[in-house]
Design a protein around this nucleic acid. Structure first.
Length: 269
DNA sequence: CCTGCTACCTGATGGC
DNA sequence: TGCCATCAGGTAGCAG
């Protein structure tokens, strides 16, 4: 489910829950979540280790241990649940037990993963990952340079984690709508002024979403809670057939790379 | 190198 | 009600 803002808010919130604490036990309840590694490796490497730091890179959540790190990816449906007093219940794939509670990795669809690596950069997806859009490194010049090098439609360019890290299907549609750019436009054909606009809107939509994700902060104690209420900041995603909030045109849904793109042909060119 | 396509999984929803 | 098709906030791996 989550894109950059959601994972960032999870990282900040779970940090205060587990940083400095020791993983007393690691239960692998559904081994698929450790593929292509095995459950034994994760258990062996995690147990007895203290969580030194919690970080995010793109949509990955990273628990830095004394030796190595746990790398989590939620894919479409993964989430975290905190069980006070270590009373783990429900559909949990992996449970990290601490002294005062257990952190469960939950993913009914089993796309998500919890992996062990010596360094986060050893994860293939992280090794080739692009610029962090909320970092100082992400300037209009950097975006323009990367756009110039790609012939792909803008929507697919924005989804490509090797160019910009952390945008997903929702915020890429939203950023393009805000910038008034068609998702079908080829990246290398975008003008200087347009790429400036796109830069501003990528940062804008992510900041806005992050604020929204932090207020109120994630509540891992409630298994029902997982980023409800974000719809209110969405201007175009999921609005097929409805009228555009800017020009009144009809919002359309098209397929790009096997995923839905929502956009308004009336004001996105 | 770049790009496009499919597999990976399960559950919810809507039409007939 | 049952059945089928479609959709879902993602990425790895492979083919051309």
């Amino acid at each position: 489910m989550p894109e950059l803002p959601e994972v960032e808010s999870v990282a900040r919130t779970v940090r205060s829950l587990v940083r400095g604490k020791t993983i007393l036990r690691c239960d692998v309840i559904h081994a698929i979540a450790t593929k292509p590694q095995g459950p034994a490796l994760l258990r062996r490497k995690a147990e007895g280790q203290r969580v030194e730091q919690v970080e995010r890179r793109g949509k990955y959540l990273i628990f830095r241990l004394c030796a190595g790190c746990l790398v989590l990816h939620f894919k479409l449906d993964g989430q975290l649940v905190w069980f006070p007093n270590r009373n783990v219940a429900g559909h949990v794939d992996i449970a990290l037990h601490f002294e005062d509670g257990a952190l469960g990795f939950v993913d009914r669809r089993h796309f998500g993963r919890v992996l062990f690596h010596r360094r986060a950069e050893d994860v293939p997806g992280i090794a080739g990952m692009g610029v962090e859009p909320l970092s100082r490194e992400f300037t209009p010049t950097v975006l323009a340079a990367r756009l110039r090098k790609s012939r792909r439609p803008l929507k697919l360019f924005l989804l490509d984690q090797t160019r910009i890290a952390g945008l997903g299907n929702i915020y890429s549609s939203e950023a393009l709508w805000r910038a008034g750019l068609s998702p079908r436009r080829r990246a290398h054909r975008v003008t200087h002024a347009e790429s400036q606009r796109l830069h501003k809107e990528i940062v804008g939509v992510l900041r806005r979403a992050l604020e929204c994700c932090l207020h109120p902060a994630p509540d891992f104690r409630n298994p029902e809670w997982w980023f409800q209420g974000l719809e209110k900041i969405l201007r175009v995603y999921g609005r097929e057939g409805k009228s555009c909030r800017r020009c009144g045109g009809r919002v359309r849904r098209i397929d790009q790379g096997g995923r839905s793109t929502f956009w308004c042909p009336g004001c996105q060119h």
